[in-house]
Each structure stands twice: as structure tokens, then as C-alpha cells.
Amino acid sequence: MDKRQICIKFAREVSAILKIAAPAIRFVPVKQLRTSTQIAALTPDGILIRNDIGVTPELFFAIAHELRHAYQLENDRSLHDYRTSDQLDIDEYNAQPLEVDANAFAAVVMAEFFGISPQFLNMPESIRQLIYVRKRQIQKELKDG
């Protein structure tokens, strides 16, 4: 299985958990993303993934994160206060409720699928705590069905 097929299979499995249709996945040059460090982005055409990334935990985390954004959009989460990563400093961006939720969901997926627990060490403790609280809530929601 090549990288694209692996990503599509993973996206289908995670989309089933979220009860959403799996979006298309396209690999693109990094210059098509907002920042040089961004791995993936949700667009109206599906998920864009930088084409220079290998099959790594970061890739799967990014896909799960973007799928959670697709879920948020389908479930009418308010986007009127949302700002993109190029509009805020990194801590302000990561503290946004939709980002906390997407990071927490991706952390749940990483734990369930791979036994990996992201630590978010590049974030301040206050944001890590928001993610951990939301992660526990999501785990309970998924368990309770």
C-alpha cells in the first residue's frame, strides 16, 4: 500500500468514528499551505497534505485533526470567531476552542489506533491542560456512544 492509500484508509476509519463522509485527500507542495510548518489543511475540496511528509505519527495526527475540523463544520460549530494560523500568534491560535477540540480528538485517535499519547510539549501548560480536559470529555463521549 502506498502513502496515499494508507492515508485514505485511515481517513475512512476515523471518518466512520465521527460519522462523516471521508473527504478527498490530496498531496500538495508545502507552498500551497498557509505556513511552512503546516502538515495538512481542510479545504472545501478535501484535506490537503504536504507531499514531502513520510508515513509518520505526525501525518496520522494531522489527518485526524483535520477530520475533526470537518466534523465541526458538519455539526454547526461556530466559525465566526475562528482565526487561521497566519492571523494569530501560535499560542492564541492553539487556544481557540475549535483547535483545542481538534487537537484533543487527534490525541484520542493516536492513543486508540497506535498507543501513542501526544504530549504537546511545544505548547504552554495552560493550553495543554485545555487539550487534556477536552480529550477526557471526548473519550467519555465516544465510550458512551
Rank of each mutant, 00 (worst) to 15 (best):
A41W: 04
T84A: 14
T37A: 10
N51C: 05
D76F: 11
A95K: 11
G145L: 09
T35H: 06
L79A: 15
A22N: 00
A95Q: 14
A22R: 01
A41C: 11
R4E: 15
A104Q: 02
Q32E: 15
E13P: 06
K143T: 10
V30G: 04
A70R: 11
V55G: 01
R50K: 12
I6P: 00
D86E: 15
P44E: 13
P29N: 06
K140C: 03
Q32N: 08
F114M: 09
R83Y: 15
G115H: 09
V133T: 08
E58Y: 01
L67E: 02
T43Y: 10
Q137Y: 01
S117R: 12
A40M: 07
Q96A: 11
L88Y: 14
T35S: 14
L142T: 04
E99A: 05
H69Y: 07
D144Q: 12
K3G: 03
L42M: 09
L98I: 09
D91H: 15
M1H: 12
E112N: 14
L33R: 07
L79F: 15
L67A: 02
A104T: 00
C7M: 03
E125C: 00
A16H: 08
F10K: 04
V30L: 09
I6N: 12
K140Y: 09
N122D: 10
R68Q: 10
A102E: 03
A95L: 08
G54N: 10
V109E: 11
A11D: 05
L48T: 01
I131Y: 01
F61M: 04
I39W: 03
Q119H: 00
G46T: 12
E141Q: 10
V100F: 00
A62G: 09
F61N: 02
F60K: 05
V14G: 08
F105W: 01
V14M: 08
T84K: 13
S15F: 03
L98K: 04
P23Q: 04
R136I: 04
H65D: 06
M123K: 12
K140Q: 10
C7V: 07
I53L: 09
I25Q: 02
K31N: 02
A11T: 11
A107F: 01
N51W: 08
S117D: 07
L121F: 00
H69G: 05
P23V: 08
E66P: 05
R77E: 05
R34E: 13
L42W: 05
L18R: 03
V108N: 05
D52E: 12
P124D: 12
Q72M: 07
H65G: 01
I49Y: 06
A106W: 02
E125Y: 00
M110E: 07
E58Q: 10
C7S: 12
I47S: 04
I127L: 01
L67I: 05
R83I: 14
A40D: 09
E141M: 05
R50P: 01
D52Y: 11
N103S: 11
E13G: 07
Q139W: 02
M110I: 02
R128I: 06
Q38I: 03
N75T: 11
M110H: 01
